[in-house]
């Protein structure tokens, strides 16, 4: 009889203890997030070769003016390169010179704002010879939409002076 009562006490204690332990456990909840259907590239863009001076100015001219660079113009640009010790400075001045020309092929601001996504895709394809990934596209479109002071020439200037544009 005594043993029976002891068993009941022990069983009761075990149940109470079990309840206490289970009460300390945090209830686990599983959340399910909807992953958007976005293409994500595995790594950053890799273009191993740096453009030579000749390649750089030739491609730059073709990209901005929509035609091959005439030989006299190419000679003048290369001479300017040779005549100053810092290539970056001459590159910057050449880019700004081309951006300032009436015949440069630059979309208008309304055209850019009418369809920012299309503008960004076209800009990447034209200058960087690739499509932007979704993250890049989202970033540039956001910049265009959020900053009303942005004009196409500012965006072009940013891309043309980037490290990626100097490489292929």
């Amino acid at each position: 009889m005594y043993i029976h009562k002891l068993n009941i006490v022990i069983i009761t204690l075990v149940i109470i203890l079990g309840m206490l332990v289970s009460a300390c456990k945090k209830k686990e909840t599983t959340y399910y997030y909807e992953v958007p259907d976005a293409a994500v590239t595995g790594s950053s863009v890799i273009k191993p070769n740096q453009k030579s001076t000749l390649e750089y100015v030739s491609i730059l001219y073709a990209d901005l003016m929509g035609q091959s660079i005439p030989q006299p113009e190419l000679t003048r640009m290369v001479t300017a390169y040779e005549a100053f010790g810092d290539d970056r400075i001459i590159e910057d001045l050449i880019i700004r010179n081309l951006l300032n020309r009436q015949d440069a092929d630059i979309p208008t601001t309304p055209e850019m704002r009418a369809n920012p996504t299309q503008f960004v895709d076209a800009m990447y394809q034209r200058f960087l010879v690739r499509k932007p990934n979704d993250y890049e596209r989202m970033y540039w479109v956001q910049q265009i939409q959020q900053d009303t002071s942005l004009h196409p020439d500012i965006l072009y200037y940013a891309v043309l002076t980037s490290a990626e544009y100097r490489h292929y």
């Binding site: 950053s44 191993p48 540039w140 940013a158 490290a163 490489h167």
Partner: peptide, 12 residues
């Protein structure tokens, strides 16, 4: 904007 582009870019 250029900094953003440069962050995406790696060269050998």
């Amino acid at each position: 904007l250029r900094d953003f582009l440069d962050q995406q870019f790696k060269t050998l």
